[in-house]
Amino acid sequence: MKVLVPVKRVIDYNVRPRVKPDGTGVDLANVKMAMNPFCEISIEEAVRLKEKGVATEIVVVSIGPQQAQETIRVGLAMGGDRGILVQTDQTVEPLAVAKILKAIVDAEQPGLVITGKQAIDDDANQTGQMLAALLGWPQGTFASEIVKDGDKLKVTREVDGGLQTVALNLPAVVTTDLRLNEPRFASLPNIMKAKQKKIDMKTPADYGVDIAPRLAVVKVAEPRKREAGEKVADVDTLISKLKTAGAI
């Protein structure tokens, strides 16, 4: 079974985002970028499926600027077989991403798509579900466990009340949550090997997808600041402060 893993290049998890003074967005100039953490988990799961003999080939896809090639290389160093970069410098919204991915799925015919449940920049949590809908495929979102069970895929999902398990017909789309696995670090030999792996260069026009945004950004602002309060000396002071504030 071929597995397609879409990945996104985003601001590094450890960097604190700063809103641009002119309110047009978040300042990404000279900021460390990395693979979206949920996408790393997706690659790791695909590699584990390959190690178990369930997956035969892992195709790593990214839609974004030229530098997203580096993000694909990280996926290839972790165990992906080849890459596809759909290059554009425009902002591509989840709906347009899903449309491009659908065209890639139509061409590549994978049996499974594994992608992150959300990107830590726009926090949209849409792409996997949208792709599944456009393909008419079932979905297992927020996955904490994936098991191939005969011709079905059993996906355990992290839901508000606890855990839920669904059985999906294949092909299917899975979106990954934090507890699915712990992504490996690519070894130096694998990073070197990944440089030889093939990345196909494409554009959104190659797939005939209109990526014009539907959402216009009016402004981006800092959230309301919370003032740091006071340190209290002991439990008794804390309790009396909370009583005064009416919190207890």
């Binding site: 949590n125 849409q126 579900q129 949208m130 809908a133 927020f142």
Partner: peptide
Amino acid sequence: ASTSGKNYAPRIAARLDIMQLSD
């Protein structure tokens, strides 16, 4: 924007060719 709403809403948006507004 519960795990349930997050699960089904984007499917509906995609089928209607609407860019969803999340959360």
